[in-house]
Write a protein that binds this DNA or RNA. Structure first.
Lengths: 348, 348
DNA sequence: CTGAAAGCGCTTACAG
DNA sequence: CTGAAAGCGCTTACAG
């Protein structure tokens, strides 16, 4: 008898292990936490007792002692948005490598909820926060009063106010548009202008797009920049329809993200417009859906795995003592992934 | 001065609130936890103190007292799989309505990791578990030794051994295939047979598919059932290619999930096979990607919002006292969503 | 290298 | 309806 959990109905505690091993709880604690100064024989004895009792540390008690909970929060707009889902999956995996557990908060990109997240919604519970804000601006973030370590995903906040990991949105978008210009397109539209506060990333991507036009000596037509409410497929579909209905439709479109681009492809399909024959389409994010699209979607691929890894890594260093110290900024690479939506079937 | 957290650098505790309000900690605890028997005046005084000190209960302490942590775990194979990402988003939202926080575990569908999840990976930390196993069978699940409340998503386990929420996979798949037969297709293939332990859901869906064939008096050709390793786009694409290469290709395909179907659509696109003209395609899950596909994907839509809601609801009742009691089973509805991949462009 | 003691912030019986 | 006390399981100085 006696495998798995304590038969007694009660789970074994540090004290039980100590008794069985014939040492003090302090020593057990030392062994469990991997401290160095424990005699090998003692360590072995303790480990045997731990195994026998199937002892597992109680994270609540540990965290209560001012120790850490081992939990970090990831706050994103919505897991139903593939980019954030993929990112979340990678963050959970990266966290696991460091024995951290991830709890998810969905903000819906709403200012109120993001404010709550930033001001310590999970204080006491989490050791740190990885936050991808949409509605909050640099000022909001810099004014944060909670002192839980935080790593920001996305645009640069006021320099020095928080650790953050980002891609060079301007450069990446510029490459995407330049790619189409290089293929001979001269009326390159953009889908994704936003008028709300959520527009920082959008703004930078559209800026890169315009830079590419300017660098190529092409005019920037205001009517070739389509605004959207959100960055979802439906918005892209609607925006594409409007562009097609304009007097001089574009021969290429840069979309602020892949979801918009997939929506745009859908409209083009419905209207029987050849892609890339008459309109070349590119997105941003490199979500899985784009890879198997028909046609497959040309996009800019940020290194999501590295974004997740760096975010968790930055947080981990904060948890391991360096709680204070200058804010760090990590710029993660990206690469243009040309596929059929700009190259045609030859792309395969 | 004095907004947000305690200036003193230390967050206010129950004791601080009690002192400020001039009551005992017990009373503060009562107010904070919404107990009834507190004099209105006392309650008001306490609430004022709570607000003034910006007091927030420490979940670790609460959980340590044998109380609850307010945290539940959601264990799914991988958030990068859209179905699970959408489900996770809905679970997080449903949990929030009940003031529960969701922590995510990714099992990768690996037996070892699922076993760890089932046997109490998060004991002490979580109040309950919502688990979508892939590799574990009914025996594994029934043999679970950990007593943390658990709600299973997916197939029926050994009746009575655990709460679970599921859709009627057999009936749903049958409808999907019957739909194509009703449209005059007679060589309806299936993609998604699995030979590993992860096959329970797959098995039921293919069973429903065969039932539809049989009910229509159609033969079940073994060569029209394509096996796959996983349920991802790439698997669907490969399987579709094999089916097309067979001597008598199908005129319709039922795929075990939407990801397989999207992969199949990709192969059909690459080979220039008209959909649904020459091959009608249907999937299962109703993930967002299918809705905007080109063509849009006919699928079976389980009521995901309800799955998430019921799962959290079942768990919540276990946390609110009914920790023991007979296992409950909730069957969630589904509906066939015919789209262009079977109906053609007229579907719009 | 190891032990005994205090205390983290809360809740839960137990009295009044 | 409210209070004083014990204790949840751990870690952290402080001694030895």
């Amino acid at each position: 008898m006696g495998r798995e959990a304590g038969e007694a109905g009660r789970r074994a505690g540090l004290k039980d292990v100590a008794r069985l091993a014939g040492v003090s709880v302090k020593t057990v604690s030392n062994v469990v936490n991997g401290y160095v100064h424990v005699a090998p024989a003692t360590r072995a004895r303790v480990q045997r007792a731990v195994a026998e009792l199937n002892y597992r540390p109680n994270p609540s008690a540990r965290s209560l002692c001012g120790g850490r909970s081992g939990i970090i929060a990831l706050a994103v707009p919505d897991l139903r948005i593939p980019y954030f889902a993929e990112l979340a999956g990678l963050v959970v995996a990266a966290a696991e490598e460091r024995s951290l557990t991830v709890l998810i908060d969905q903000t819906g990109g709403e200012r109120e909820r993001e404010l709550r997240v930033a001001s310590g919604l999970r204080t006491h519970l989490i050791d740190g926060l990885i936050f991808s804000p949409l509605a909050l601006g640099p000022e909001d973030l810099a004014a944060r009063s909670d002192d839980t370590p935080m790593v920001l995903l996305g645009e640069r906040v006021r320099p020095g106010s928080a650790d953050h990991v980002a891609v060079d949105n301007v450069a990446a978008a510029r490459e995407a548009t330049a790619h189409r210009i290089g293929l001979g397109r001269h009326r390159v539209a953009a889908i994704g202008a936003r008028h709300d506060a959520a527009g920082e990333t959008a703004r930078l991507r559209l800026l890169g797009h315009r830079q590419a036009l300017t660098e190529a000596g092409l005019p920037v037509h205001a009517d070739l920049v389509a605004p959207v409410d959100e960055y979802l497929r439906a918005d892209g579909a609607r925006a594409m329809a409007r562009l097609l209905d304009s007097p001089e439709p574009p021969d290429a479109v840069f979309c602020g993200n892949d979801l918009l681009a997939l929506g745009a492809l859908r409209t083009l399909y419905e209207r029987g417009v050849e892609v890339p024959g008459r309109v070349a389409v590119a997105g941003f994010d490199d979500i899985d859906d784009g890879r198997y699209g028909t046609p497959s979607l040309t996009t800019v691929a940020p290194d999501k795995r590295r974004i997740a890894g760096e975010a968790v890594g930055l947080l981990a260093t904060r948890l391991d003592g360096a709680a204070t110290g200058p804010a760090r900024e990590i710029q993660v690479g990206h690469r243009l992934v040309p596929r059929e939506s700009t190259l045609g079937r030859a792309a395969r």
